[in-house]
Design a protein around this nucleic acid. Structure first.
Lengths: 128, 128
DNA sequence: CCGTATCCTTCATGATACTG
DNA sequence: CAGTATCATGAAGGATACGG
């Protein structure tokens, strides 16, 4: 994903590359954040209501959850279903692209688990 | 990584779990951010100086790069080598845990590539 | 129950300048 | 060249209240 020059391509192809690259960067900016990852991990392959999600993610404010869900919905990673009942009921689930990203988040969780003690000692060493 | 209760464990084990959990969350907060990912991806399996890194990441300020490198170093993901020459020369490379995380970032890059058109059209649909 | 809007506070970020 | 410190500004985030 660097902005390196690639030879053997026409100017138009170069332009396409950098357009795709800047879009990719935008997606990174959106998605590569703590709350998005935690939401995706929490949703898993299940279906959760707003309040359930908020409770299970833990430590996220009403506002942050709304913002991140809108962002994920906008990128087509989360599907939002509204039941026009009283009181309202809204369900969230991952779409197929969302599930794809979930696989990535899963590998990061596994990575965390694998290296958590290394990281902890690296921190202690650094902080002294 | 949720904060769910797990039965069949002693209080001490529960405490260990939640300690590990909160540490894992801290690591997530540190590492799951745009700049960290871009830096890790840019470093790859190579060795780069501060200024090279800054140039190749692109669009990152001096300060942000320093901050993120310190954070990554603190977590033991990046190794920093200082050559006491004049002018100074500092090289950065990924450690083994850092390489492990790089694998995750790579899968995210692949994911972005795979779904980039879906995401783009989802956005256009949403924004109208 | 869920979403949005508002206000207010805190933090993150960029620009700049200075040091080793 | 690389790092740190300072300052100023804008954005992020929390609390609250109201509307559908």
């Amino acid at each position: 994903m660097g902005t390196k020059q690639v030879s053997g391509l026409s100017a138009a192809e170069q332009a396409d590359l950098s357009r795709a690259d800047s879009l990719a960067r935008e997606i990174f900016s959106d998605v590569a954040n703590k709350w998005a990852f935690l939401i995706i991990e929490t949703l898993g392959d299940g279906v959760l209501r707003f309040s359930e999600l908020r409770q299970q993610v833990g430590g996220i404010s009403h506002k942050m959850l709304t913002q991140n869900l809108r962002m994920l919905e906008r990128n087509g990673l989360v599907e939002r279903t509204v039941y026009p009942t009283v009181p309202p009921k809204v369900e969230y689930r991952l779409t197929e692209p969302g599930q794809g990203l979930r696989a990535t988040v899963d590998t990061m969780c596994a990575w965390t688990h694998k290296y958590i003690t290394d990281i902890e000692s690296a921190r202690q060493a650094f902080d002294s």
